[in-house]
């Protein structure tokens, strides 16, 4: 009897220790990765980062063209992808809520959410780069949009389904046509949820590297025109980190710090705002 009690106590304690250690293990890596990025990145930060172009090996420079190119492609990708994602989410949650098509799309969309992003990059390469004959910022933006669409579809579907049905019933009872109910009333009620999804998706595509490798490529010079190859932060980090040159590696760390800070800050702000909103 006593032995049984002891055994159960020990097992219980082991479970407790195991769960706590697992959590500490997860947080440990987060801290280590952030610490590395922070310490290496701060050492490489300088005002030239924002004013100068990516340099040839051995000379000083910055990442101005890469920041600009990334901003253009991420915004363009969001502008292309967000409306499509919101439309698809609206179909899933409103018009087609109980249709077979909606069930299929929801299933496929969840698979696309986790699909390898490098394959999307190859797809856009085949679709755009090969047919147009050259790499371009537009192709990069399109690849980013394709990563963004499933995320926005999923989050707007969920946000719209959280809107209480009474609101729809009340709007219909006033004689509004279906599209006005959705556009004027349901969208307003779900606006913060939909925005949360779009911003989180924007944060996600800001750090995407694989889809840009064969679409936007890279550009060592100032490239304001998305019709040609475009510099962007993730691919610059990739190339510079893999290089043997010290000044390139330092720039890669600086870029990594700015990218991580941007993505994590956006994530934190959006999640905190969403939590505050839902807590009320």
């Amino acid at each position: 009897m006593n032995a049984t009690v002891l055994r159960r106590r020990i097992l219980d304690w082991v479970a407790f220790a195991f769960a706590s250690l697992a959590t500490a293990f997860g947080l440990f890596w987060l801290a280590w990765i952030l610490w590395t990025t922070l310490s290496q990145g701060i050492a490489a930060l300088s005002p030239a980062l924002l004013t100068q172009m990516t340099p040839p090996p051995g000379s000083d420079g910055g990442l101005a063209n890469a920041f600009y190119g990334s901003a253009v492609m991420v915004l363009l990708g969001t502008v292309i992808g967000a409306p499509i994602g919101i439309a698809a989410g609206t179909y899933l949650a409103e018009h087609g809520r109980h249709t077979r098509l909606a069930a299929t799309v929801r299933f496929i969309n969840d698979i696309l959410l986790s699909a390898p992003s490098i394959v999307i990059g190859l797809f856009v390469y085949e679709l755009v780069v090969r047919t147009s004959g050259h790499f371009s910022g537009y192709a990069g933006a399109l690849a980013l949009a394709m990563i963004l669409i499933p995320i926005v579809t999923r989050t707007s579907d969920e946000a719209l389904r959280l809107v209480p049905n009474q609101m729809r019933e009340a709007a219909f009872a006033l004689g509004l046509p279906g599209w006005k109910v959705t556009a004027r009333i349901i969208y307003k009620a779900a606006a913060s949820g939909i925005m949360t999804g779009v911003l989180l998706a924007l944060a996600r595509i800001s750090g995407e590297t694989a889809p840009l490798l064969f679409t936007a490529l890279n550009n060592q010079f100032w490239s304001a025109n998305p019709a040609g190859p475009m510099a962007n932060v993730p691919v610059v980090i990739f190339q510079y980190a893999m290089s043997p040159y010290d000044n390139w590696r330092a720039l890669a760390w600086a870029g990594a710090l700015v990218l991580t800070a941007f993505v994590l800050t956006l994530n934190l702000l959006v999640r905190l705002a969403a939590r505050k909103g839902s807590g009320k």
């Binding site: 959590t23 590395t36 750090g207 590297t209 990739f238 980190a241 760390w253 990594a256 990218l259 934190l268």
Partner: peptide, 23 residues
């Protein structure tokens, strides 16, 4: 704590790559 763990998923994979290679 849940949010901190979720942040692990938000870190761009290229950062994992750099950290993996250099550290």
């Amino acid at each position: 704590i849940g949010m901190a763990i979720e942040l692990l998923a938000a870190i761009p994979s290229i950062i994992y790559g750099m950290w993996g290679l250099f550290v």
